[in-house]
C-alpha cells in the first residue's frame, strides 16, 4: 500500500491532476464571485421583481445538492441544444452554485456596515452609487475577502464532485488509477494527501493575509499558532 501511495504521489499524472484541481478551483470561484457580485444587488434591490428573481435563484441553488446540479447540467444542457465540453460544464456548474453562496457573503458584509454610514454619505451629497463605491464597499471589503478565502478553501474540496461527470482532476485521476490497480487504496490516499496539502497551504496564506499588520510576533510563533488554530478548529 505504501508503495502504491508513493508511486501515485510522485507520478506526473497526479501532479498534473492537482494543477487541474487548482485552476478549476480558481475558475469556478471567479465565476461564482462575479455571479454573486451581480446577484447581490438584485437580492437587495427595491424592485420587487429583481428581488424575486434573486430569491428564486438562491432557493433553487441552495435548496438542492450541488452533485444533483452538476449531473443535471451535464445531462440536460445537450438536450437543450447547448454543447459544451466537460471543463465548461464543470466551471458553469460549480460557478452557478458558488454564485448563490457568494450572494449571502456579499450581502452579509454589506448589511454589516453601520446604517449611519450610508445616511452620512448621502447627507454630504454623494449619489447612491458613489456612497456605495467610496463609503460602504471599502468597509464591507474585509468581510467579503475573509468570506472569499473560506469559500476557496471549500471549493478545493468541492471540485472533487466533477469527477462524477468524468473530469480528470485529482479524484478523477485516482479513480482512473484505482480501476486498474490491485490495491485501490494507494491512489485514493494520494488524492487525499494532495487535497490536504492544498487546503493546509491555503489556510496558511489566509492566516498571513488576515494577520497583515496584526500581531505577527518575531519568530513567527503566533502566526503558526493561529494557523494551527484555524486548521484544528479551536476545540
Amino acid at each position: 500500500m505504501t508503495g502504491d501511495l508513493l508511486n501515485a504521489l510522485s507520478s506526473t499524472a497526479f501532479l498534473r491532476a492537482a494543477l487541474t484541481t487548482v485552476w478549476l478551483t480558481a475558475a469556478a470561484q471567479a465565476v461564482g464571485t462575479l455571479g454573486g457580485a451581480l446577484l447581490a444587488p438584485l437580492r437587495m434591490a427595491n424592485n420587487a421583481a429583481a428581488r424575486a428573481f434573486a430569491s428564486c435563484y438562491l432557493l433553487i441553488f441552495r435548496g438542492t445538492p450541488e452533485l444533483l446540479q452538476l449531473i443535471a447540467w451535464y445531462a440536460v444542457l445537450p438536450l437543450a441544444g447547448v454543447n459544451l465540453n466537460l471543463v465548461e460544464i464543470a466551471v458553469i456548474g460549480l460557478g452557478a452554485n458558488e454564485s448563490a453562496r457568494m450572494v449571502e457573503i456579499i450581502r452579509g458584509a454589506l448589511l454589516g456596515v453601520d446604517g449611519g454610514q450610508a445616511d452620512a454619505a448621502r447627507s454630504v451629497g454623494l449619489t447612491r452609487l458613489r456612497a456605495l463605491r467610496h463609503v460602504i464597499l471599502p468597509q464591507a471589503m474585509p468581510a467579503i475577502i475573509a468570506g472569499l478565502g473560506n469559500e476557496v478553501n471549500i471549493m478545493f474540496k468541492t471540485t472533487s464532485l466533477v469527477s462524477v461527470i468524468g473530469m480528470t482532476e485529482l479524484l478523477g485521476q485516482s479513480e482512473i488509477v484505482a480501476q486498474t490497480a490491485r490495491n485501490p487504496l494507494g491512489p485514493y490516499l494520494a488524492a487525499l494527501v494532495y487535497y490536504l496539502l492544498l487546503t493546509t497551504i491555503w489556510a496558511a496564506g489566509q492566516g498571513l493575509l488576515t494577520n497583515r499588520g496584526g500581531d505577527v510576533r518575531v519568530g513567527g510563533r503566533s502566526v503558526i499558532g493561529a494557523w494551527w488554530n484555524a486548521l484544528s478548529g479551536e476545540l
Binding site: F156, L171, Y195, T199, L231, S232, G233, L235
Partner: peptide, 15 residues
Amino acid sequence: AGIYVWLWRGTPLLV
C-alpha cells in the same frame, strides 16, 4: 482531537 478535525475537514468528503 485537533489532528482529527484537521484531517476530516481538510479533505473532500467524496474522497
